[in-house]
Design a protein around this nucleic acid. Sequence first.
DNA 1: GTCTATAACGGGATAGAC
DNA 2: GTCTATCCCGTTATAGAC
Lengths: 186, 186
Amino acid sequence: MSATTKTRAEVVAQIFTVFRDRGFEGATLSELSQSTGLGKSSLYHYFPNGKEDMVFAIFTLLGQWMKDNVLEPLHGVGTPKQKLRAMLHAFDELYDGGRNACVLGALVSGGGRMRFQTELKASFEAWIIALRDLAIEAGVPRREAQQRAEDAVVRFEGALILSGGLGDSGPFKRASRQIERDLLAV
Amino acid sequence: MSATTKTRAEVVAQIFTVFRDRGFEGATLSELSQSTGLGKSSLYHYFPNGKEDMVFAIFTLLGQWMKDNVLEPLHGVGTPKQKLRAMLHAFDELYDGGRNACVLGALVSGGGRMRFQTELKASFEAWIIALRDLAIEAGVPRREAQQRAEDAVVRFEGALILSGGLGDSGPFKRASRQIERDLLAV
DNA sequence: GTCTATAACGGGATAGAC
DNA sequence: GTCTATCCCGTTATAGAC
Protein backbone atom coordinates (compact mmCIF):
# COMPACT_ATOMS: atom_id res chain seq x y z
CA MET A 1 0.00 0.00 0.00
CA SER A 2 1.21 3.48 -0.80
CA ALA A 3 0.61 6.70 1.05
CA THR A 4 -2.19 7.72 -1.28
CA THR A 5 -3.98 4.38 -1.57
CA LYS A 6 -6.26 3.29 1.23
CA THR A 7 -6.51 -0.35 2.05
CA ARG A 8 -9.91 -1.75 2.75
CA ALA A 9 -8.82 -2.32 6.34
CA GLU A 10 -8.10 1.37 6.77
CA VAL A 11 -11.45 2.32 5.34
CA VAL A 12 -13.27 -0.12 7.58
CA ALA A 13 -11.41 1.18 10.61
CA GLN A 14 -12.64 4.67 9.82
CA ILE A 15 -16.27 3.82 9.21
CA PHE A 16 -16.18 1.72 12.37
CA THR A 17 -15.89 4.86 14.46
CA VAL A 18 -18.84 6.48 12.71
CA PHE A 19 -21.21 3.58 13.35
CA ARG A 20 -19.93 3.31 16.89
CA ASP A 21 -20.67 6.96 17.61
CA ARG A 22 -23.83 7.44 15.57
CA GLY A 23 -25.53 4.06 15.37
CA PHE A 24 -26.81 2.51 12.17
CA GLU A 25 -29.47 5.07 11.30
CA GLY A 26 -27.39 7.98 12.52
CA ALA A 27 -24.43 7.12 10.32
CA THR A 28 -25.03 9.06 7.09
CA LEU A 29 -23.18 8.56 3.84
CA SER A 30 -22.08 12.17 4.05
CA GLU A 31 -20.35 11.59 7.36
CA LEU A 32 -18.95 8.25 6.23
CA SER A 33 -17.65 9.97 3.13
CA GLN A 34 -16.09 12.73 5.17
CA SER A 35 -14.50 10.44 7.72
CA THR A 36 -12.93 8.21 5.08
CA GLY A 37 -12.08 10.97 2.62
CA LEU A 38 -13.81 8.94 -0.08
CA GLY A 39 -16.68 10.09 -2.22
CA LYS A 40 -20.02 8.40 -1.82
CA SER A 41 -19.57 6.48 -5.05
CA SER A 42 -16.20 5.23 -3.93
CA LEU A 43 -17.81 3.88 -0.79
CA TYR A 44 -20.11 1.87 -3.03
CA HIS A 45 -17.06 0.48 -4.74
CA TYR A 46 -15.88 -0.92 -1.40
CA PHE A 47 -19.36 -1.77 -0.17
CA PRO A 48 -21.75 -2.53 -3.04
CA ASN A 49 -24.73 -2.88 -0.73
CA GLY A 50 -24.09 0.35 1.12
CA LYS A 51 -24.35 0.71 4.86
CA GLU A 52 -25.40 -2.87 5.41
CA ASP A 53 -22.20 -4.10 3.81
CA MET A 54 -20.22 -1.66 5.90
CA VAL A 55 -21.63 -3.11 9.08
CA PHE A 56 -20.86 -6.65 7.93
CA ALA A 57 -17.29 -5.48 7.35
CA ILE A 58 -17.24 -4.09 10.87
CA PHE A 59 -18.29 -7.45 12.28
CA THR A 60 -15.42 -9.04 10.35
CA LEU A 61 -13.02 -6.44 11.71
CA LEU A 62 -14.28 -7.07 15.23
CA GLY A 63 -13.77 -10.79 14.78
CA GLN A 64 -10.21 -10.19 13.69
CA TRP A 65 -9.57 -7.80 16.55
CA MET A 66 -10.93 -10.34 18.99
CA LYS A 67 -8.70 -13.00 17.50
CA ASP A 68 -5.59 -10.83 17.72
CA ASN A 69 -6.21 -9.28 21.11
CA VAL A 70 -8.15 -11.92 23.00
CA LEU A 71 -7.98 -15.39 21.50
CA GLU A 72 -4.30 -15.46 20.54
CA PRO A 73 -3.02 -14.13 23.88
CA LEU A 74 -5.32 -16.66 25.51
CA HIS A 75 -3.34 -19.50 23.97
CA GLY A 76 0.00 -17.83 24.57
CA VAL A 77 2.30 -17.85 27.54
CA GLY A 78 1.67 -16.46 31.00
CA THR A 79 -0.63 -17.04 33.91
CA PRO A 80 -4.37 -16.55 33.44
CA LYS A 81 -4.14 -13.44 35.56
CA GLN A 82 -1.44 -12.00 33.29
CA LYS A 83 -3.47 -12.82 30.22
CA LEU A 84 -6.55 -11.18 31.69
CA ARG A 85 -4.57 -8.04 32.39
CA ALA A 86 -3.38 -7.98 28.79
CA MET A 87 -6.95 -8.42 27.53
CA LEU A 88 -8.24 -5.68 29.78
CA HIS A 89 -5.51 -3.41 28.52
CA ALA A 90 -6.59 -4.09 24.95
CA PHE A 91 -10.21 -3.33 25.80
CA ASP A 92 -9.15 -0.17 27.57
CA GLU A 93 -7.46 1.00 24.39
CA LEU A 94 -10.39 -0.01 22.19
CA TYR A 95 -12.79 1.96 24.36
CA ASP A 96 -10.28 4.71 25.08
CA GLY A 97 -10.69 4.33 28.80
CA GLY A 98 -14.48 4.63 28.60
CA ARG A 99 -14.66 7.62 26.27
CA ASN A 100 -15.64 5.49 23.29
CA ALA A 101 -18.92 3.63 22.98
CA CYS A 102 -19.21 -0.03 22.02
CA VAL A 103 -20.24 -0.56 18.42
CA LEU A 104 -22.15 -3.70 19.38
CA GLY A 105 -24.16 -1.74 21.91
CA ALA A 106 -24.78 0.98 19.35
CA LEU A 107 -26.11 -1.57 16.86
CA VAL A 108 -28.29 -3.29 19.45
CA SER A 109 -29.75 0.00 20.64
CA GLY A 110 -30.34 1.52 17.23
CA GLY A 111 -32.53 0.06 14.56
CA GLY A 112 -29.93 -2.57 13.72
CA ARG A 113 -31.13 -4.93 16.40
CA MET A 114 -33.24 -7.04 14.07
CA ARG A 115 -31.22 -6.42 10.93
CA PHE A 116 -27.98 -7.80 12.38
CA GLN A 117 -29.35 -10.15 14.97
CA THR A 118 -27.33 -13.14 13.80
CA GLU A 119 -24.04 -11.26 13.74
CA LEU A 120 -24.68 -9.52 17.04
CA LYS A 121 -25.44 -12.80 18.73
CA ALA A 122 -22.32 -14.40 17.30
CA SER A 123 -20.13 -11.49 18.38
CA PHE A 124 -21.42 -11.46 21.92
CA GLU A 125 -21.12 -15.22 22.18
CA ALA A 126 -17.54 -15.21 20.92
CA TRP A 127 -16.68 -12.56 23.46
CA ILE A 128 -18.30 -14.50 26.29
CA ILE A 129 -16.61 -17.75 25.26
CA ALA A 130 -13.19 -16.12 25.26
CA LEU A 131 -13.67 -14.79 28.78
CA ARG A 132 -15.19 -18.06 29.93
CA ASP A 133 -12.29 -20.14 28.66
CA LEU A 134 -9.87 -17.91 30.47
CA ALA A 135 -11.77 -18.44 33.71
CA ILE A 136 -11.84 -22.17 33.09
CA GLU A 137 -8.10 -22.15 32.57
CA ALA A 138 -7.77 -20.42 35.93
CA GLY A 139 -9.63 -23.28 37.58
CA VAL A 140 -13.16 -21.90 37.71
CA PRO A 141 -15.84 -24.56 37.18
CA ARG A 142 -17.33 -24.38 33.71
CA ARG A 143 -20.81 -23.33 34.71
CA GLU A 144 -19.57 -20.66 37.07
CA ALA A 145 -17.07 -19.52 34.44
CA GLN A 146 -19.88 -19.04 31.92
CA GLN A 147 -21.82 -16.87 34.37
CA ARG A 148 -18.83 -14.77 35.23
CA ALA A 149 -18.01 -14.23 31.56
CA GLU A 150 -21.56 -13.06 30.89
CA ASP A 151 -21.30 -10.79 33.91
CA ALA A 152 -18.10 -9.30 32.57
CA VAL A 153 -19.72 -8.48 29.22
CA VAL A 154 -22.76 -7.04 31.01
CA ARG A 155 -20.46 -4.86 33.08
CA PHE A 156 -18.49 -3.66 30.06
CA GLU A 157 -21.60 -2.77 28.12
CA GLY A 158 -23.43 -1.20 31.02
CA ALA A 159 -20.42 0.76 32.16
CA LEU A 160 -19.92 2.16 28.66
CA ILE A 161 -23.55 3.27 28.58
CA LEU A 162 -23.33 4.89 31.99
CA SER A 163 -19.98 6.51 31.28
CA GLY A 164 -21.45 7.89 28.07
CA GLY A 165 -24.58 9.11 29.81
CA LEU A 166 -22.75 10.77 32.67
CA GLY A 167 -19.87 12.01 30.55
CA ASP A 168 -17.53 10.45 33.09
CA SER A 169 -15.17 7.59 32.44
CA GLY A 170 -15.30 6.54 36.10
CA PRO A 171 -17.89 3.78 35.71
CA PHE A 172 -15.90 2.14 32.92
CA LYS A 173 -12.66 2.23 34.85
CA ARG A 174 -14.29 0.75 37.91
CA ALA A 175 -16.02 -1.97 35.89
CA SER A 176 -12.68 -2.88 34.41
CA ARG A 177 -11.18 -3.25 37.88
CA GLN A 178 -14.13 -5.30 39.05
CA ILE A 179 -13.78 -7.66 36.12
CA GLU A 180 -10.09 -8.08 36.87
CA ARG A 181 -10.96 -8.87 40.47
CA ASP A 182 -13.95 -11.16 39.91
CA LEU A 183 -13.51 -13.14 36.70
CA LEU A 184 -10.80 -15.50 37.91
CA ALA A 185 -11.33 -15.33 41.67
CA VAL A 186 -11.12 -18.63 43.47
CA MET B 1 -60.65 12.61 28.76
CA SER B 2 -63.04 10.90 26.39
CA ALA B 3 -62.51 7.77 24.35
CA THR B 4 -61.74 9.72 21.22
CA THR B 5 -59.45 12.39 22.66
CA LYS B 6 -55.89 11.49 23.42
CA THR B 7 -54.25 13.07 26.39
CA ARG B 8 -50.72 14.27 25.99
CA ALA B 9 -49.62 11.59 28.45
CA GLU B 10 -51.05 8.88 26.21
CA VAL B 11 -49.31 10.29 23.16
CA VAL B 12 -46.00 10.51 25.00
CA ALA B 13 -46.36 6.94 26.24
CA GLN B 14 -46.73 5.78 22.65
CA ILE B 15 -43.83 7.71 21.17
CA PHE B 16 -41.74 6.54 24.10
CA THR B 17 -41.78 3.00 22.75
CA VAL B 18 -40.71 4.16 19.29
CA PHE B 19 -37.63 6.02 20.51
CA ARG B 20 -36.81 3.15 22.84
CA ASP B 21 -36.87 0.63 20.00
CA ARG B 22 -35.47 2.74 17.17
CA GLY B 23 -33.22 5.34 18.77
CA PHE B 24 -33.35 9.04 17.97
CA GLU B 25 -32.32 8.89 14.31
CA GLY B 26 -34.21 5.69 13.68
CA ALA B 27 -37.52 7.08 14.95
CA THR B 28 -39.20 8.59 11.90
CA LEU B 29 -42.23 10.81 11.88
CA SER B 30 -44.02 8.21 9.79
CA GLU B 31 -43.62 5.59 12.49
CA LEU B 32 -44.40 8.06 15.24
CA SER B 33 -47.52 9.04 13.35
CA GLN B 34 -48.53 5.44 12.91
CA SER B 35 -47.91 4.45 16.51
CA THR B 36 -49.90 7.36 17.88
CA GLY B 37 -52.60 7.37 15.24
CA LEU B 38 -51.99 11.10 14.77
CA GLY B 39 -51.08 12.79 11.53
CA LYS B 40 -47.62 14.27 11.26
CA SER B 41 -49.01 17.78 11.51
CA SER B 42 -50.88 16.86 14.66
CA LEU B 43 -47.61 15.71 16.18
CA TYR B 44 -46.27 19.20 15.59
CA HIS B 45 -49.25 20.52 17.49
CA TYR B 46 -48.16 18.51 20.54
CA PHE B 47 -44.44 18.97 19.93
CA PRO B 48 -43.71 22.24 18.07
CA ASN B 49 -40.01 21.46 17.77
CA GLY B 50 -40.52 17.97 16.44
CA LYS B 51 -38.53 14.99 17.61
CA GLU B 52 -36.40 16.98 19.98
CA ASP B 53 -39.49 18.09 21.89
CA MET B 54 -40.74 14.53 21.92
CA VAL B 55 -37.57 13.36 23.61
CA PHE B 56 -37.81 16.12 26.19
CA ALA B 57 -41.35 14.93 26.89
CA ILE B 58 -40.01 11.42 27.32
CA PHE B 59 -37.52 12.62 29.90
CA THR B 60 -40.37 14.27 31.75
CA LEU B 61 -42.39 11.05 31.57
CA LEU B 62 -39.41 9.08 32.87
CA GLY B 63 -39.02 11.50 35.75
CA GLN B 64 -42.66 11.01 36.66
CA TRP B 65 -42.40 7.24 36.33
CA MET B 66 -39.37 7.28 38.58
CA LYS B 67 -41.22 9.39 41.11
CA ASP B 68 -44.25 7.09 41.14
CA ASN B 69 -42.45 3.77 41.06
CA VAL B 70 -39.19 4.41 42.84
CA LEU B 71 -39.15 7.56 44.94
CA GLU B 72 -42.64 7.32 46.45
CA PRO B 73 -42.35 3.66 47.49
CA LEU B 74 -38.96 4.54 48.92
CA HIS B 75 -40.58 6.87 51.44
CA GLY B 76 -43.49 4.55 52.10
CA VAL B 77 -43.87 1.69 54.50
CA GLY B 78 -42.00 -1.60 54.55
CA THR B 79 -38.49 -2.85 55.05
CA PRO B 80 -35.78 -1.77 52.60
CA LYS B 81 -35.76 -5.29 51.22
CA GLN B 82 -39.49 -5.15 50.56
CA LYS B 83 -39.15 -1.77 48.89
CA LEU B 84 -36.34 -3.04 46.71
CA ARG B 85 -38.46 -5.97 45.61
CA ALA B 86 -41.27 -3.60 44.68
CA MET B 87 -38.85 -1.41 42.69
CA LEU B 88 -37.41 -4.41 40.88
CA HIS B 89 -40.90 -5.53 40.04
CA ALA B 90 -41.63 -2.13 38.54
CA PHE B 91 -38.45 -2.26 36.47
CA ASP B 92 -39.29 -5.76 35.36
CA GLU B 93 -42.57 -4.49 34.01
CA LEU B 94 -41.01 -1.43 32.38
CA TYR B 95 -38.50 -3.62 30.56
CA ASP B 96 -40.95 -6.48 30.07
CA GLY B 97 -38.60 -8.95 31.69
CA GLY B 98 -35.70 -7.95 29.44
CA ARG B 99 -37.54 -7.93 26.14
CA ASN B 100 -37.66 -4.13 26.01
CA ALA B 101 -34.62 -1.92 25.63
CA CYS B 102 -33.88 1.06 27.84
CA VAL B 103 -34.70 4.37 26.24
CA LEU B 104 -31.79 6.04 28.03
CA GLY B 105 -29.40 3.50 26.58
CA ALA B 106 -30.94 3.98 23.15
CA LEU B 107 -30.41 7.74 23.37
CA VAL B 108 -26.85 7.39 24.65
CA SER B 109 -25.93 4.92 21.92
CA GLY B 110 -27.54 6.77 19.05
CA GLY B 111 -26.70 10.25 17.95
CA GLY B 112 -28.56 11.75 20.89
CA ARG B 113 -25.60 11.45 23.20
CA MET B 114 -24.50 15.04 22.75
CA ARG B 115 -27.91 16.52 22.00
CA PHE B 116 -29.45 15.36 25.29
CA GLN B 117 -26.37 15.18 27.45
CA THR B 118 -27.82 17.29 30.24
CA GLU B 119 -31.05 15.32 30.46
CA LEU B 120 -29.33 11.96 30.19
CA LYS B 121 -26.95 12.84 32.99
CA ALA B 122 -29.81 14.04 35.18
CA SER B 123 -31.84 10.89 34.53
CA PHE B 124 -29.01 8.53 35.34
CA GLU B 125 -28.11 10.50 38.43
CA ALA B 126 -31.69 10.49 39.71
CA TRP B 127 -31.81 6.75 39.20
CA ILE B 128 -28.55 6.21 41.03
CA ILE B 129 -29.56 8.47 43.91
CA ALA B 130 -32.81 6.57 44.40
CA LEU B 131 -31.00 3.25 44.62
CA ARG B 132 -28.28 4.74 46.79
CA ASP B 133 -30.74 6.15 49.32
CA LEU B 134 -32.40 2.78 49.61
CA ALA B 135 -29.07 1.17 50.38
CA ILE B 136 -28.32 3.88 52.92
CA GLU B 137 -31.66 3.24 54.58
CA ALA B 138 -30.69 -0.42 54.83
CA GLY B 139 -27.56 0.54 56.73
CA VAL B 140 -24.98 0.56 53.95
CA PRO B 141 -22.32 3.27 54.40
CA ARG B 142 -22.91 6.20 52.08
CA ARG B 143 -19.84 5.73 49.90
CA GLU B 144 -20.39 2.03 49.51
CA ALA B 145 -24.08 2.67 48.82
CA GLN B 146 -23.17 5.05 45.99
CA GLN B 147 -20.93 2.44 44.39
CA ARG B 148 -23.53 -0.28 44.66
CA ALA B 149 -26.19 1.97 43.16
CA GLU B 150 -23.94 2.74 40.18
CA ASP B 151 -23.25 -0.97 39.85
CA ALA B 152 -26.94 -1.71 39.78
CA VAL B 153 -27.53 0.78 36.96
CA VAL B 154 -24.53 -0.61 35.08
CA ARG B 155 -25.97 -4.11 35.45
CA PHE B 156 -29.41 -3.06 34.28
CA GLU B 157 -28.09 -1.26 31.23
CA GLY B 158 -25.54 -3.91 30.31
CA ALA B 159 -27.96 -6.75 30.83
CA LEU B 160 -30.53 -5.08 28.58
CA ILE B 161 -27.90 -4.69 25.87
CA LEU B 162 -26.79 -8.29 26.17
CA SER B 163 -30.32 -9.62 26.35
CA GLY B 164 -31.11 -7.63 23.23
CA GLY B 165 -28.00 -8.83 21.42
CA LEU B 166 -28.52 -12.47 22.31
CA GLY B 167 -32.29 -12.38 21.93
CA ASP B 168 -32.49 -14.00 25.35
CA SER B 169 -33.99 -12.43 28.44
CA GLY B 170 -31.74 -14.55 30.68
CA PRO B 171 -29.07 -11.91 31.31
CA PHE B 172 -31.66 -9.37 32.39
CA LYS B 173 -33.38 -11.76 34.76
CA ARG B 174 -30.09 -12.74 36.32
CA ALA B 175 -28.94 -9.14 36.67
CA SER B 176 -32.19 -8.38 38.44
CA ARG B 177 -31.57 -11.20 40.92
CA GLN B 178 -27.99 -10.06 41.47
CA ILE B 179 -29.14 -6.53 42.22
CA GLU B 180 -31.69 -7.85 44.69
CA ARG B 181 -28.93 -9.86 46.35
CA ASP B 182 -26.13 -7.27 46.33
CA LEU B 183 -27.58 -3.79 46.74
CA LEU B 184 -28.55 -4.03 50.39
CA ALA B 185 -26.26 -6.85 51.53
CA VAL B 186 -24.62 -6.29 54.92
C1' DG C 1 -57.00 19.72 17.38
C1' DT C 2 -56.71 17.20 13.32
C1' DC C 3 -56.56 16.92 8.61
C1' DT C 4 -54.68 17.38 3.42
C1' DA C 5 -51.33 19.21 0.76
C1' DT C 6 -46.97 20.58 -0.08
C1' DA C 7 -42.57 22.81 0.48
C1' DA C 8 -37.64 22.22 1.41
C1' DC C 9 -34.21 19.37 2.42
C1' DG C 10 -31.14 15.49 2.91
C1' DG C 11 -30.81 10.61 2.57
C1' DG C 12 -29.30 6.38 -0.03
C1' DA C 13 -28.10 4.84 -4.34
C1' DT C 14 -26.72 4.70 -9.51
C1' DA C 15 -24.67 6.01 -14.16
C1' DG C 16 -20.98 7.01 -16.65
C1' DA C 17 -16.74 9.76 -17.57
C1' DC C 18 -11.94 9.67 -16.46
C1' DG D 1 -10.78 3.41 -8.01
C1' DT D 2 -12.45 7.89 -7.80
C1' DC D 3 -15.00 11.60 -9.41
C1' DT D 4 -19.26 14.60 -10.97
C1' DA D 5 -23.74 14.60 -11.74
C1' DT D 6 -28.08 13.03 -10.97
C1' DC D 7 -32.22 10.37 -9.50
C1' DC D 8 -35.71 9.01 -6.41
C1' DC D 9 -37.46 8.71 -2.21
C1' DG D 10 -38.32 9.45 2.70
C1' DT D 11 -38.05 12.87 6.14
C1' DT D 12 -38.81 17.06 8.57
C1' DA D 13 -41.49 20.89 8.75
C1' DT D 14 -45.08 24.40 7.45
C1' DA D 15 -49.51 26.39 5.58
C1' DG D 16 -54.09 26.58 5.63
C1' DA D 17 -58.79 24.35 5.41
C1' DC D 18 -62.13 22.29 8.50
